[in-house]
Structures are given as structure tokens and as C-alpha cells.
């Protein structure tokens, strides 16, 4: 202990899994909070050595740059397909897929649905920010009705572009899914709930077969065109109204395969 830290003890610093690279996210983006949340839960559950993470296309795709666990970057929407292969080779590995709304909800919907139907054993972390963040905020399947994006200049119209996609509710209807929940990190209280849900989702994977899915709502200040504080207020008022938080499915994993 040097003279600077004498008389005081460390109460919080970033998890040890997160290295010293600077986050590239826009100011106020929730992804930085979420990546550290995942890292802290992995550390607390002592899963660091056997974890394989998967990312496909989205703003979170540089997570391997920041988090020191094994990662595979799949093609756009193909994280479930790559994860299926890895699961066949590494039956004992702990796996999580990070997927965004353009990735899981649009181009990779078929892969995701089939992985759920097969009841594959991994944890899907679905990051929902209601737009295509990486490509400058086009309309995503999860964009709210009336929300203005670069491809829906007058607000999303249900007659032209349909209705928002509810992934947690959809996953709860599938038999291959053992855990489906939605949370967000807009307040410290919701952060604590999200951490608890993420621990449950990870524990379900360790307990037995079946996919566990956690949907995380996230603010996207740059593409919503709002300052970080107002983006969080928008998330609290509008996104949570459309996507209610909570657990949608929580069942015991099937032991007979």
C-alpha cells in the first residue's frame, strides 16, 4: 500500500476482466455499463476460465477488445449458428452470445428461432436500443411506433413497417427456452435487478439444457438525437412502456435430453 491509498480501501473499480483499452462507445451509451456488468458477473461466478463469448455485428462487436475472455466474432446474425458448432465441440464450455436488435431481430431471426427450437444451451444477451446503432440509426424491428429514425423520417408507421418485436415474450413461448427476462440499466436500482437476472440466466445454463435469454434495453443518445440524460428519460418513459421489464419465463431445465 503506497501513501496515496493509505487509510482508505478500494470500494469500486472496473472488473479485472476489463482491460485498459478505452471504450469506443458514444458518450452516454449504456453498452459500457452492460459490458462491465457481464464481466463482473462472470468474475463473481468464477466462470472466467471456461467462458467462450460470441459477438456478431453491432456496436458491441468490439467487446473482445475490452474483455479478456475467449471470443468468436460471427457473421452478421450468425452467432447462434457458430455457437451451435462450438457447443458440439466444447460441451463443457460456458457460452454467451451478445446480439443486437438488427442482428438477432432482423437478419439473424431464423438462426435464433431455430436455436431456441433446438433448446441449445447458452445464454443469449439481447441488446435492444430500438435502432441500428452501428450504421447510424436506421429503423430496427424493435423501433417504437412513431419513433423517428433515418429511414422513418415521419416516425415509424405500423401500416408501412409493422409493429415492434418483443423478443423476451417471444422467447417465453418456446419450449427450448428455460429463462426469458427483460431488464435495463437506466437507474442504479434497475442495474441491481439486471445483475440478479443475469446471474440467474447464467446459472440456468450451468444447471442444464435449454437456452436462457436476457433482453437488455439500452439508450442510444447519438442516434436518438438526445443528450445522454434525456435519452435515459426517453428510455424510462417510452421504451419501458412498450417493453415491460420483468421475468417472462423461469422454469427448471429439462434433465432428460
Amino acid at each position: 500500500m503506497n501513501s496515496e491509498t493509505a487509510g482508505k480501501s478500494l470500494a469500486y473499480e472496473k472488473p479485472k476482466l476489463i482491460n485498459d483499452n478505452k471504450f469506443h462507445f458514444c458518450p452516454g451509451c449504456n453498452y459500457g455499463i452492460i459490458i462491465r456488468l457481464i464481466a463482473s458477473v462472470l468474475e463473481e461466478m468464477k466462470l472466467t476460465d471456461k467462458t467462450i463469448g460470441l459477438v456478431s455485428a453491432g456496436c458491441y462487436v468490439q467487446t473482445p477488445w475490452y474483455m479478456d475472455v475467449d471470443f468468436v466474432a460471427a457473421l452478421h446474425g450468425r452467432a447462434p449458428a457458430v455457437a451451435t458448432g462450438i457447443r458440439r465441440v466444447h460441451p463443457d464450455a460456458f457460452m454467451f452470445c451478445m446480439q443486437g436488435d438488427g442482428d438477432l431481430g432482423a437478419i439473424g431471426m431464423g438462426h435464433f428461432m431455430n436455436a431456441m427450437m433446438r433448446g441449445e444451451r447458452w445464454t443469449t444477451i439481447f441488446l435492444n436500443n430500438a435502432c441500428y446503432g452501428q450504421t447510424r440509426g436506421q429503423m430496427a424491428p424493435t423501433t417504437l411506433l412513431g419513433m423517428r429514425t433515418t429511414t422513418t423520417q415521419d416516425g415509424r408507421d405500423a401500416e408501412k413497417t409493422g409493429y415492434p418485436l418483443h423478443v423476451a415474450e417471444l422467447a417465453a413461448t418456446m419450449k427450448g427456452v428455460v429463462y426469458a427476462a427483460r431488464c435495463c440499466v437506466n437507474t442504479p436500482a434497475n442495474y441491481a435487478k439486471a445483475k440478479k437476472m443475469l446471474k440467474t440466466a447464467f446459472q440456468k445454463q450451468l444447471d442444464g439444457p435449454g437456452m436462457s435469454i436476457l433482453e437488455l434495453l439500452s439508450a442510444c443518445p447519438s442516434n436518438w438525437g438526445l443528450p445522454p440524460k434525456e435519452a435515459l428519460a426517453f428510455l424510462t418513459e417510452n421504451m419501458i412502456a412498450e417493453y415491460p421489464l420483468g421475468e417472462y419465463k423461469n422454469v427448471e431445465p429439462k434433465i432428460d435430453v
Binding site: 469500486y12 471504450f23 459500457g32
Partner: peptide
């Protein structure tokens, strides 16, 4: 403030 900071 520590865990809610997006940039660690």
C-alpha cells in the same frame, strides 16, 4: 457513480 459510469 462507479458502476453507472459508461466508460469505467
Amino acid at each position: 457513480c462507479g458502476f453507472m459510469c459508461p466508460d469505467a
